[in-house]
Design a protein around this nucleic acid. Sequence first.
DNA 1: GGAATTACTTGATCTAGATCAATCTTCTTT
DNA 2: AAAGAAGATTGATCTAGATCAAGTAATTCC
Lengths: 195, 195
Amino acid sequence: MSDPHEFILQHISRHIVLSEQDIQFFKSVLRHRKLRKRQYLLQAGDVSLYENFVVKGCLRAYTVDNDGTEHIVMFAVEGWWVSDLYSFLTGTPATQNIDALEDTEVFSIEKKDLEKLYQQVPEFNRMFRILLQNAFVAQQQRIIGSISQTAEEQYHSFITKYPTLEQRLPQNQVASYLGLTPETLSRIRKQQAKK
Amino acid sequence: MSDPHEFILQHISRHIVLSEQDIQFFKSVLRHRKLRKRQYLLQAGDVSLYENFVVKGCLRAYTVDNDGTEHIVMFAVEGWWVSDLYSFLTGTPATQNIDALEDTEVFSIEKKDLEKLYQQVPEFNRMFRILLQNAFVAQQQRIIGSISQTAEEQYHSFITKYPTLEQRLPQNQVASYLGLTPETLSRIRKQQAKK
DNA sequence: GGAATTACTTGATCTAGATCAATCTTCTTT
DNA sequence: AAAGAAGATTGATCTAGATCAAGTAATTCC
């Protein structure tokens, strides 16, 4: 499994079955890239030209508001796809930044190639349909949490849902994902330690 | 366009092209239903057995928290699809309620039929992939708004994004969608009227 | 068409979480 | 291994929006 192609093909085979020919074509559109920790994969203002699959490491997509505060849109670890989808679909400048929280390896697919892929191997429509359904459900839950739960409840949901992420991420990144300040999250953790 | 089948077929033809045979099969899996205002399409606790397309009227999907407060997950007007997707996919009891804010007509597709549809007319994978991409983008924006904007900013974003919905919905429903109390929304509107 | 729900408004008060500030700890990088 | 940067903690204070309460305006429905 040290071969990165092996890893992505495994992932895909969970949802669709590809012929040897399909696999060859798919591999041919993948561009393998390595990012150092803190390196950008996408900067707000540029157009998101690629859909990216994380092979190793961890990325974050985030926006920066008027007073310079970062707000995390999503994390992407091994097996996740990430881009600024709106920018990718429309060709308009990205509002999101994507950078590496750890040294990271990705496969990137260019938009034109992805379109070709959908045509030549329509099964990929099915795969992304399924992945997007799952993302849709997760996002709805995050929205409901965000509008109906206290900070403490949201944090608790987060660690139950993503126990490994919680281990792996700096606390301030989790705070930003939840829409809290690092101070508030620190206090919540202190509280919980008592129990 | 008074024929409801005409309406849904029009919508679908924006994304995919169907043969006469495909159309016949598609129509055969649609169940047309009418709901009175306030009538449930789905109650939390029941399994979401259908994916529903709104032909006429307006639905809301919402959860109810421990103190009985409702939180709106989404609205669905003409041309939108709605279900408790998690329940629909997994067969587990729904956490969401769906009911009618106006007298409403929908087409419902049973899960088994939808699966058959994906098999017999794989183009539907493509269509739902595209619709889900759009939903993904919209939900990301809602999440970012919710964790980074003030109540006033969120309300402003809402009316710019959904001007017709804003007209059509009771104010307290909009408040609930935004995660605000009706009192707060009322005060925001009063503020804005001054300007 | 009038009673009864349901929706909206306005005021007074409260509170969860933000902000500001200072210190401490843990990683990075050389 | 030491210096610097980034992350975490703790305390004091502030504030946006919630809650509680009471009244007014719209709808709904017999």
